[in-house]
Computed example of a mutant assay.
Amino acid sequence: MPTAYGNYHNYNGPASRFPGFPPSSHVRDARLTMLESLVPGLFTAKHCLDIGCNAGTVSCQLAVDFEATSVTGVDIDSSLVNQAENLLALRSSRVRPPIAESSKPIVDYFPVSAVLTHGYRVEPASKTSRSSPAAPALPLLPRVNFIAADFVLSADPAISGPYDVILALSVIKWIHLEHLDKGLVTFFQKCSSSLASGGYFVIELQTWDSYERAIRPTTAPHFRESLAQLKLRPETSFDEILQEHGLQLHKTCDSLPRRISVYRKV
Rank of each mutant, 00 (worst) to 15 (best):
Thr128Gln: 11
Arg213Gly: 09
Val122Lys: 12
Thr72Tyr: 01
Val112Glu: 15
Asp150Cys: 04
Tyr263Arg: 10
Thr117Asn: 05
Pro157Lys: 12
Gln189Tyr: 14
Lys182Gly: 11
Asp108Met: 10
Ile159Arg: 03
Trp174Phe: 13
Thr128Tyr: 03
Pro98Arg: 13
Cys48His: 07
Ala84Cys: 03
Ala68Asn: 04
Arg233Ala: 08
Arg17Leu: 13
Pro14Thr: 01
Asp254Lys: 08
Thr117Glu: 14
Leu42Ile: 15
Arg96Tyr: 07
Tyr263Asp: 08
Lys173Ser: 04
Leu116Val: 01
Pro221Tyr: 02
Lys46Gln: 14
Pro111Val: 04
Ala84Phe: 12
Pro257Arg: 00
Thr186Val: 04
Pro157Met: 03
Ser59Trp: 05
Pro98Thr: 00
Glu85Ala: 01
Arg264His: 06
Arg28Cys: 02
Tyr11Asn: 06
Asp150Gly: 11
Tyr263Met: 12
Arg258Phe: 00
Leu169Asp: 11
Leu167Gly: 08
Arg17Glu: 15
Ser197Val: 06
Ser192Met: 03
Thr218Asp: 13
Thr219Gly: 05
Ala134Phe: 03
Ala168Asn: 14
Asp150Thr: 02
Thr252Gln: 10
Tyr120Cys: 10
Ser59His: 01
Arg28Trp: 00
Ser132Gln: 15
Arg130Val: 10
Leu167Arg: 09
Ala4Asp: 15
Gln248Pro: 04
Val185Asp: 15
Ile172Cys: 15
Glu244Cys: 05
Val27His: 10
Ser16Glu: 15
Phe151Leu: 08
Cys191Pro: 02
Leu138Val: 10
Ala148Met: 03
Lys104Ala: 15
Leu227Asn: 12
Thr72Trp: 03
Phe151Ser: 12
Phe110Tyr: 14
Arg94Lys: 12
Glu123Phe: 00
Cys53Leu: 03
Ser37Trp: 05
Met1Thr: 09
Gly198Val: 06
Leu249Gly: 14
Arg17Ile: 07
